[in-house]
Simulated assay, not measured.
Amino acid sequence: MTSVTFLLMIVVFIATLGIQFWLQRTYARYSRVANARGLTGAQVARTILDAHGLHGVRVEPVPGALTDHYDPMQKVVRLSEPNYASPSSAALAVAAHEVGHAIQDAKGYAWLRVRAQLLPVANIGSMFGPWIFLLGMLMSFNETLMSVGIWLFGAAALFQLVTLPVEFDASNRALAILQRMNFLDNREMGGARAVLTAAALTYVAALANSLATILHYVAIMQSAREE
């Protein structure tokens, strides 16, 4: 059983690498396609926020590539420097997606609030869960420690599960807004949709990785119990 779950982990890991490669390739492709209106990610983010009455939410550049995120504590949409200044279809898609999170926050989107509540436990689980499980293995397969490690890591997986509807909803909002406010034409919308679809699949892959790891941990504990 442990060999099967280990093989599953390898397959999921390889699939994750493939999805990451697809995201990078898709993003690079549509980063070279300028939108017809010549608007930058920062301009579109600001326009959408103002259109939704979110005048107090700032838009700021942040170093790095694909480091874009919405900070609900500071009420800031942070766009990676390339997306902040770029007039590409990819930049507009990412900017609109992050603004989608700001709109979720303003509207009290339930899944966003649940994710925020899970975040502290998820951080602890992802950081310490595997180490506690390993410690249990080293201590003559101590089932109590191994179980604690699994449950803690499970909290991180639960966070990833809740993240899916949050990210999918933000992308759906982004695409609808980009089309409704005529930021992108039909051809450019195809590029925006491709970028957001590839990004969404990375969250699915992360969850699959965590679930495969949990199954492997459970199989190890079950094998130790049977010996």
Rank of each mutant, 00 (worst) to 15 (best):
A102T: 03
V76E: 00
I220C: 07
L138I: 10
N123Q: 14
A192R: 05
V11C: 12
A156D: 12
G125C: 13
G38W: 09
D68E: 07
F159E: 02
P82Y: 03
Y30Q: 07
S140C: 06
R113S: 11
A224E: 11
G38S: 08
F168W: 12
V4H: 11
A45L: 01
F168R: 05
R173K: 12
E227L: 09
G64V: 09
I150M: 14
A15G: 13
F128K: 11
E98L: 04
R115S: 00
T2L: 11
A95Q: 01
L54H: 02
L135Y: 14
A200M: 09
P61S: 08
T47R: 14
W151R: 12
N35I: 05
R173C: 03
S210I: 08
A116V: 02
E60W: 02
A176K: 14
G56A: 12
V218L: 15
L119H: 10
A91N: 05
F153D: 01
R32M: 14
L135Q: 08
A106M: 01
G149P: 06
V114G: 00
L152G: 04
T163C: 03
R225C: 09
A36C: 07
S80H: 03
S86F: 01
S31R: 08
M127D: 12
N83G: 01
R46Q: 13
G100C: 03
E81T: 13
T40V: 05
M127S: 15
F21A: 14
A155P: 01
N172L: 09
F168K: 01
I10N: 09
N83P: 01
A176S: 13
A205H: 02
M137N: 00
A224T: 03
G154Y: 07
F133D: 05
A90H: 04
A200F: 09
G38Y: 11
L118V: 06
A42M: 05
H101G: 05
L184A: 10
T144G: 10
G125D: 08
R187V: 13
P72V: 01
T197I: 14
L39K: 08
I14E: 08
V62Q: 06
V4Q: 10
A110Q: 07
Y27G: 00
A45G: 04
Q104H: 09
V166Y: 04
M1T: 11
A91F: 00
E188H: 07
S88G: 07
I150D: 04
D105C: 04
E60L: 15
M139Q: 13
